[in-house]
Each structure stands twice: as structure tokens, then as C-alpha cells.
Nucleic acid binder design. Structure first.
Length: 587
RNA sequence: GCGCUCGUAGCUCAGCUGGAUAGAGCGCCGGACUUCGAAUCCGUAGGUCGAAGGUUCGAAUCCUUCCGGGCGCACCA
């Protein structure tokens, strides 16, 4: 919306600049492209064209040039509505806000929940892998950043028109799983989630911790775990049975956590099924000469061409490695669902792995290797430093959600809103989720972030609940409007009545939304939406605080301000759905 | 040691990919509810943008060096 207005002006100014260059200076060559910016202060206008770049070529000081262009353009009969102003070396435009508001109201009214979406990626098939938990312990804070990002980026890509397939790869084999199993065999006394009332993933996690304690005392523990892995790989019925039992518990627990956190997948892959894949592919590469075999029989790739060292791809006994398996899994996925791109949401510590993986797939001749993308996100640390499982500082996901939920519940109670809220429990959970997702997504994904437990449970300031609160207030006002202002509702929307400074800013911000969705999609960056939403909410909040809506001076003004508030609400709803913040009509 | 990455207010983060006086939240201090929801709003204080050079009309942003954090550099996943 806003970009269309900007483009119109840009084209015009560029044309006039070229005209000036030709008629005054006799310059026919194309000039440098015109930069378009947003003035630092709204008083300076809505669009800015810096003219520094033309000073030399046109032999004119930028402020003078700005003045000349202004005069020149103002002579045109069919220029877009809006005003030009010269601010030093900038030629600025104050757009015609009433006409923008009118078309905005049409578009938002027509598109509703689709307002802001675009077709940039239409017909593109995008697969996105995220979460990928181990089955030996419950989810923690690190997973939550991963899950929030995965869900959000998936939603954002859909809003950009893509067909999205969310996939999860369950890490359900390996020596770490055997450790939990072994500890359970030794100390478990046949207890179960049912018998103890402990959620399955937590129960299994407890045994993983017990193993660590035991291994400190008994130096043979690690060895025994390795032995169990061998039995598992050999298909020993007793080991397999225990593995199935305990994996079932964990997966049950994880499913509950996912449900509570609003996370879902279109397909699950299990490492126990994929870990043998990739071997044939590596051997094919060996035949084609892109890999080589060492004397001991292991297969390697030389990564000198991408300035890395050598990397082993198959052990001397012919068994797979992490890399081998990921090669196989990628190929299998492309067969399952031929994608135009595949995004791996994985922590930044694995950058090296993905660099190698993509390169190896390229060497194997898969031309889609260039369509693979590692969405690398930073670590989540605590104010005291890194989370360490040994020191018990790992933040458990279920616990965190529960804490936030009960805090939200307490807040509802304290404000005596229990009767006014549909479902206190559900609302509390939605507030908790909104707080958490917003907290985790507001930081640029690639950066490390610090999770401050105290701050994360705050519902004031730049938080998810703050945004939800704006939605609830507007909803509340609209309910009243629909019930008591039937006569006003018959009036038409008169955008010329929205003349306040904050109203201008709100209209512009609403019009900006589609661009933010596009950018967030292009950069896989939900934090852009967070920043945008906070700006919008803050603007709205100030405007709403300072200006009566339902009690505005005239019915026509009531009608116009209601229109503005409704548009804000629509954008809030639409954007919330892209960052995992549940919309609440009351809270 | 090599590679990647980050360093902006006391703390947590923005800063539109090189432009105008570097912005928010939290915290501190001080204001605003007989009026549409105070989970709100308004104001004060707080900065040599890690340091030094360089490129440029113009640098938090690009280049070089240095300092300081984080993460990698497994026949673990």
C-alpha cells in the first residue's frame, strides 16, 4: 500500500530529475538511481529523496536542486496528490493521507484476514525442518526458540504465498538413548508415567540424569551403554522392547508439550528409520570420484575447494555418521515431496555441518543443493551465562509455560476479570504463549540472546501481552459500538476527518504492513514483525488514550475513528498469527 | 592456532543494508483513572555506537588492524 505511493513518487522525481539534467545541463546519460528514505521525523514529511548524489553531475548544491525540482514538479497538472517540501538537501513528500486512508479502508475491508499477504512465493514448495528433539529428555528453552522460529517462519512463508511443509526429525536412537534405558533397567523398578504421575518425557529424562550420576561412580557405565547400542542395532528383542516402551513415553510427553505450545508438523521422520540412509549415495560418489577411500577403508571428501579440511563420510566398518544420514534424509525428502527449497532451523553451532552437507549434496550432482538453507539461530543464554544441564540451570519448557500460565491466571484474578473472560484457563494459556513466543522472536534470529526469567514473566512494556491487550481493548470497544451505535454505523467512512498527527502515523503504519510481511519472508526474520507490531500498538495506545472514539464530537468522526481502530485490529490479528501470539477478544 | 559470529544507555534489544539531532522496553525519579479496559499513557535523567586507522560530501552501518565475548574445527548427534 505505502510502497505503491512511494514508487509513484519515486518514478516522478526520477523523471523530473532526468528532464532537468537534459534541459538544463544537456546530460542524456541515465543518472544514478534515486534513493528513497523515510524522514527521521514525521514533521519532515513521509517520503524522503536525498539529492547528494546529483550535486556533482548537475553542478548544483543539493538544497538548490531540491528547490528547483519542487518548483518543476508543482507545475505539472497530473501529479499525484500530496505536498512537496524542501528540507535542506532532501526533497520530501507529505503524502495525501486522506486518499491513502480511503483506499486502505477498501483494501483492508475487502481482504480482511488476507490483508498483508502476497503471492511472491506462489506455487513454491518450501519444506521447513525444525524442533528435532532427542527422545531422552523433555524440551527446554533452546528447543523453544527453535520451535517458535520454525512455526513463525512457516506461517510467514505461507503469507508470502508458499506451500509449506513442516517436518520434524525425531532423534530416537544412539548411545544417549541407551543411557536412559540402561539407568531405567538398573533403577527403574518398573515404574511408568501412569504409576508415578510423571509426564513421560520427564520420567525418561530423570533416568538420563540418573545415568550421569551413576557413570561417575561406575567407570563401566559408558561401556555398558555402548554395548546396549550394539544390541539395539543387532535387533535384540528385549532391548528393542524397552526402547519402544520408553520412546513411546517420551513421544507422548513431547506431543503434549507441542499441543500446549501450538506447534504442529505435517510429517515426522525418525532417525531410527533414516540412520542407515545415505550410505549408497556416498558409495555412488565414491564411484564418480568425488570422494575417496583411505587405506583403512573409510570414505572421505576433500573440502579444499570451499576452504575446509577433509571430512569422513563413512566409517571403515561401513557404518553411517551424522553427515551420511543427513545426506540420505535430504535426498529422501526431496523424493517424498519435491521442494523448491528446504530450510533447516538449527542452532548456529552447526553452521559447519550444514556448509559441508550442502556442498556434499552438490558434489553428488543434486542441483537442488543450492536450494537448501540453514536458518541458523543464536544460543539462548541466561543472565548468569550458559545453561548447563550438569548444574541444573536448564530451563524446562513445560515448567516455564506452566509458570507463565499461572502468573497470567493470577493477573486475571487480581484485576477481577474472571467473569469477563470467556475461559480463564484457556485465556491464561494464551497469554503465556503470547508472552513466550514474542519474547523469543523479538530478537534477530541469528543473534545470541539472553533469557531473563524475571523479564520474561513480565506482561508490561514491550511484550506479547501488551500487544494482546491492544487487541482486547479494540475488540471491547467494537462490541460496544455494534451494540449501541447502529445509527452511526450507517454512515460512510470519511477519511478527511482523520487529521490528527497520530492518525496520520497510524494510517501510514497500517499501510506499511504488507511490506513487513514481505521482508520478514525474504529474510526469514520474524523479529521484523515484532518490531512492527510494537510500533503499531504503541501508536494506537497513545492515540486511544488521548482521543475519544465512541464519544468523539460528531457521529461522522465516531464512524471514521472506528474505521481506523478496526483496521488496526485487523492488522493485529493478521500479524499475531504469524508470530504465535494468540489473539484474545478479551483478557 | 584456523574459521564463523557478535560488541549500541545500568540491563535486554531496535537502528529501514551509507544519510538529517543514534531510538525503544525494563530499571530509577516524577506525573495522569467521576470519561471508550491503568496489563495503559505522559515526562526527567542516562551514549567518546569496544579501540584506532582508512574509504566517502556523509560511517553505528563498508575495509584494515587490535581488544574482548560466543560457537565451531569428532570415524558424537
Amino acid at each position: 500500500m505505502l510502497s505503491a505511493v512511494r514508487e509513484k513518487w519515486k518514478t516522478l522525481v526520477e523523471e523530473q530529475l532526468a528532464l532537468y539534467a537534459k534541459s538544463v545541463m544537456g546530460i542524456e546519460e541515465p543518472l544514478a538511481p534515486l534513493a528513497v528514505q523515510i524522514p527521521p521525523k514525521p514533521e519532515l514529511g513521509d517520503i524522503a529523496f536525498p539529492l547528494f548524489a546529483y550535486a556533482k553531475v548537475l553542478r548544483s548544491a543539493p538544497p538548490l536542486l531540491a528547490q528547483q525540482l519542487k518548483t518543476q514538479i508543482e507545475k505539472l497538472d497530473d501529479r499525484p496528490s500530496g505536498d512537496l517540501l524542501v528540507a535542506g538537501p532532501y526533497l520530501n513528500v507529505r503524502i495525501d493521507i486522506a486518499s491513502l486512508a480511503t483506499s486502505l479502508s477498501e483494501v483492508v475491508g475487502r481482504e480482511r484476514e488476507r490483508y498483508g499477504t502476497n503471492a511472491t512465493l506462489s506455487d513454491k514448495r518450501v519444506m521447513i525442518e525444525f524442533s528435532c528433539p532427542n527422545t531422552n529428555k523433555p524440551l527446554h528453552l533452546g528447543h523453544m526458540r527453535n520451535d517458535s522460529l520454525g512455526e513463525s517462519v512457516a506461517a510467514i512463508l505461507k503469507a508470502n504465498g508458499a506451500m509449506v511443509r513442516k517436518v520434524n526429525l525425531i532423534n530416537n536412537r544412539g548411545v544417549h538413548i541407551c543411557k536412559s534405558m540402561l539407568a531405567y533397567q538398573k533403577f527403574g523398578n518398573h515404574e511408568t508415567p501412569d504409576s508415578t504421575g510423571i509426564k513421560g518425557d520427564h520420567l525418561v529424562g530423570n533416568y538420563y540424569v540418573k545415568f550421569a550420576a551413576w557413570a561417575k561412580e561406575d567407570p563401566t557405565a559408558e561401556e555398558q551403554a555402548q554395548e546396549m547400542l550394539r544390541k539395539w542395532e543387532a535387533g535384540d528383542p528385549e532391548t528393542i522392547a524397552l526402547w519402544e516402551l520408553m520412546n513411546g513415553w517420551t513421544l507422548d510427553g513431547l506431543a503434549q508439550s507441542y499441543a500446549k505450545m501450538g506447534i504442529s508438523f505435517d510429517a515426522y521422520y525418525y532417525e531410527s528409520q533414516t540412520y542407515r540412509y545415505g550410505k549408497d549415495e556416498i558409495l555412488k560418489g565414491l564411484e564418480n570420484g568425488v570422494f575417496y577411500r583411505q587405506e583403512d577403508g573409510s570414505v572421505w571428501v576433500d573440502l579444499e575447494s570451499i576452504k575446509l579440511d577433509k571430512k569422513v563420510l563413512l566409517r571403515k566398518d561401513g557404518t553411517s555418521l551424522y553427515m551420511t544420514q543427513d545426506v540420505g534424509t535430504a535426498i529422501m525428502r526431496h523424493k517424498d515431496w519435491p521442494f523448491d527449497s528446504l530450510i533447516y532451523v538449527v542452532a548456529s553451532e552447526q553452521q559447519y555441518h550444514f556448509k559441508v552437507l550442502f556442498h556434499v549434496l552438490g558434489l553428488l550432482g543434486y542441483e537442488w543443493a543450492k536450494d537448501l538453507h540453514h536458518l541458523s539461530y543464536g544460543m539462548v543464554n541466561l543472565p548468569e551465562g550458559k545453561m548447563k544441564s550438569r548444574e541444573g540451570t536448564v530451563v524446562d519448557a513445560d515448567e516455564l509455560v506452566d509458570t507463565l500460565t499461572s502468573l497470567a491466571r493470577a493477573e486475571i484474578k487480581e484485576k477481577e476479570r474472571e467473569e469477563l473472560v470467556d475461559d480463564v484457563e484457556k485465556t491464561s494459556q494464551s497469554i503465556a504463549l503470547g508472552a513466550l513466543n514474542y519474547y523469543l522472536l523479538q530478537v534477530t534470529p541469528t543473534k545470541d540472546m539472553i533469557f531473563n526469567p524475571k523479564e520474561s514473566i513480565s506482561f508490561n512494556g514491550n511484550t506479547g501481552p501488551y500487544l494482546q491487550y491492544m487487541g482486547a481493548r479494540i475488540s471491547s470497544m467494537l462490541r460496544k459500538y455494534e451494540a449501541e451505535y447502529a445509527e452511526v454505523a450507517k454512515l460512510g467512512f470519511d477519511s478527511s476527518l482523520l487529521t490528527l498527527f497520530d492518525e496520520r502515523e497510524l494510517i501510514k503504519q497500517i499501510a506499511l504492513y504488507p511490506e513487513v510481511v514481505a521482508k520478514a519472508g525474504a529474510e526469514y526474520d520474524p523479529s521484523l514483525l515484532c518490531t512492527y507490531l510494537y510500533d503499531l500498538s504503541k501508536l494506537f495506545s497513545r492515540w486511544y488514550h488521548d482521543n475519544p472514539v465512541l464519544k468523539a464530537a460528531t457521529p461522522a468522526l465516531v464512524r471514521s475513528r472506528i474505521e481506523l481502530a478496526s483496521m488496526v485490529l485487523q492488522v493485529l490479528k493478521n500479524a499475531f498469527s504469524l508470530i504465535g501470539v494468540p489473539f484474545l477478544a478479551s483478557m
